[in-house]
Design a protein around this nucleic acid. Structure first.
Length: 554
DNA sequence: AAATCCCCCAACCGCAGACAT
DNA sequence: CATGTCTGCGGTTGGGGGATT
């Protein structure tokens, strides 16, 4: 293993050293650079999520696996929403916190595009503010779960939470809509195609609250949980028995009305299970990932993931793409959800279902390219660094032929269908213990990568896009047998550029997602140094094709 | 203008569970 | 079954930057 000395310590980041066989690898800590983001994003596109430690081993990225996972999950993965929480989201967070407590990951599962870290930060900030103001954490209508159902094993924790929740209960103001720190309980957007509506009618509340949300923690979420957790409760009020504390009734902000509708964007259904179920064990070997030991694509592969989330995250995809063919959502008798997928190509999520932030920059065009001149640079001014990679990927897609796009779509369709089938198996099998191993589809155009780079969609994250001979694949960043000398040189270059980027290109405050123009350009140039333009004719082909060129960055 | 306070948020750390060997 | 590894989660920290003094 080659030691990449990328951590200089003078960029705000520090280094760790881990033992790696015969040598020690300097692992960088601290803020991420745009160059590192690109490497990470390219790797995930190529190999899917998981194997975070392998990432460190097989790329030039001198980051520990945990750091990579965090960076991907919080900043780079597709369809992340950025910016402040909306009123609806804030309401939902409060509601979920009352129900779940500090289960940030579960809360994040209910808030498409939001990360647990975001929610946690939001809540902690809010907590401090309300404590300082002496206001209660919850509106009077929201009764925290643990207050409804104290459990002996958690009394200590509950007591602490109680103290948090009502820091100065006697000084709190009445939570009128104007005085409450919480958003007023106005009706949310009740687009029937993209929202749930809660009819919180007394005793039936729990039965509505709970089953409607496939990710509600007391609902079995995974096949393994199906067997290990109690089945959904029958249609009776949880209040009917003091022993039944599983499904609390939550008045949902307005108990003046016995029939209050509460609507919020529908969370992704079971098709987007907790990553803890699916992201595990992609590759436990120390050998470089390849296409034979890779786990099937959906839903964590870069291909399926993009389409998957944009496709299924209805509140966003539907608004961004009114013409997108609908998928039918079934709330089945057993309170689990399923989808009906139209296997026809017309129902496949095309670029029209891309996140809205892309639409301002990216115009789907079946025959030619768009925003190809300085795709990264031109986008960056409006987008945080975590979206740059997506732009690049979409940019790439737009450079492919219709045939290639067709292959791409079929691949994703296979992935989606694969998931549906798998989910059906899981639900049907019930009680089967562990979820079945994810099927490895026998055909996927992605499996042709090692044979034909022309189909290498997502490996082309940076560099030139339409030259089949010079595609800058992440594969090229991996040490290959017989390429030791060359790769060493490349890795040294990367190490240098990262080191150098740390010294000069990275913004000083370490807020890695806020990449400055200079920083980004420098980072791109750093990559340009790895892929000399003179070896890639297309790179200099700054002409009719509008192909990306390093020269364009100047 | 300088100092201080506070908010925000990215990233790290430790722990626990799942899984492989 | 024991052990090691990997991953995810929740708690915490620390720096940047705006607001306030």
């Amino acid at each position: 293993m080659i030691l990449y000395g990328v951590g200089t310590g003078n960029d705000g980041g520090s280094t760790n050293h881990i033992s790696d066989g015969g040598g020690r690898v300097a692992l960088k800590k601290g803020p991420w650079t745009a160059a590192e983001d690109e490497i990470l994003a390219a790797y995930v596109r190529e190999n899917g999520e998981g194997n975070w430690n392998a990432l460190q081993k097989h790329t030039c990225l001198a980051r520990c696996g945990k750091s990579c996972r965090l960076r991907w999950a919080n900043h780079l993965r597709p369809n992340l929403k950025k910016g402040s929480f909306t009123g609806d989201e804030e309401r939902l967070i409060i509601q979920l916190h009352a129900q779940l407590g500090n289960k940030w990951a579960r809360m994040a599962a209910q808030l498409p595009g939001r990360t647990d870290n975001e929610i946690k930060n939001y809540w902690n900030t809010r907590l401090k503010r309300l404590q300082r103001q002496g206001l209660p954490l919850y509106p009077p209508d929201v009764i925290p779960n643990h207050q409804l159902h104290p459990h002996p094993q958690h009394q200590h924790q509950q007591q602490n939470q109680h103290q948090q929740m009502y820091f100065h209960p006697h000084s709190s103001q009445p939570n009128t809509p104007s005085s409450s720190p919480l958003p007023s309980p106005t009706q949310l957007n009740a687009n029937p195609s993209s929202s749930f509506t809660f009819h919180t009618t007394n005793a039936s509340t729990a039965n509505l609250l709970h089953p409607l949300s496939p990710h509600t923690p007391t609902t079995p979420q995974t096949p393994s949980q199906l067997s290990s957790r109690p089945p959904p409760q029958p249609l009776s009020s949880p209040l009917s028995s003091p022993l039944n504390n599983q499904y609390p009734t939550l008045p949902l902000f307005n108990n003046n009305n016995n029939n209050t509708n509460f609507t919020f964007p529908r969370p992704p259904p079971l098709l987007q299970p907790p990553s803890s179920l699916l992201a595990r064990r992609y590759n436990n070997s120390n050998t470089p990932l390849n296409y034979t030991n890779r786990v099937s694509t959906a839903p964590f592969s870069p291909v399926s993931r993009d389409s998957y989330t944009s496709f299924l995250t209805l509140p966003y995809s539907s608004s961004a793409a009114p013409n997108t063919q609908p998928i039918t959502y079934h709330n089945t008798n057993n309170n689990y959800s399923s989808f009906s997928l139209n296997p026809s190509s017309s129902s496949y999520p095309t670029t029209t279902s891309f996140p809205s932030f892309l639409h301002s920059h990216y115009t789907p065009n079946s025959s030619s390219t768009s925003f190809h001149t300085n795709p990264v640079y031109s986008m960056k001014q409006d987008l945080p660094s975590n979206q740059i990679s997506q732009i690049c990927a979409f940019n790439n897609v737009n450079n492919f032929t219709d045939n290639e796009k067709g292959l791409h779509r079929r691949s994703i369709s296979c992935s989606l269908l694969e998931d549906v089938m798998e989910e059906a198996e899981a639900l049907d099998g019930g009680g089967g213990g562990r979820p079945p191993k994810r099927r490895q589809l026998t055909y996927s155009p992605l499996n042709n990568h090692h044979n034909n780079n022309d189909n290498d969609f997502f490996s082309v994250t940076f560099g030139q896009y339409d030259s089949s001979e010079n595609i800058c694949s992440l594969q090229d960043l991996k040490p290959k047998e017989g390429e030791t000398l060359e790769m060493n040189t490349m890795q040294e270059d990367i190490a240098k550029l990262l080191d150098w980027g740390s010294d000069s290109g990275e913004i000083s405050n370490g807020q890695s997602s806020a990449v400055t123009d200079e920083n980004l350009v420098l980072d791109v140039h750093q990559f340009a140094s790895l892929f000399p333009a003179d070896s890639t004719p297309a790179a200099n082909d700054n002409n009719d094709n509008n192909n990306f060129s390093w020269d364009d960055l100047d």
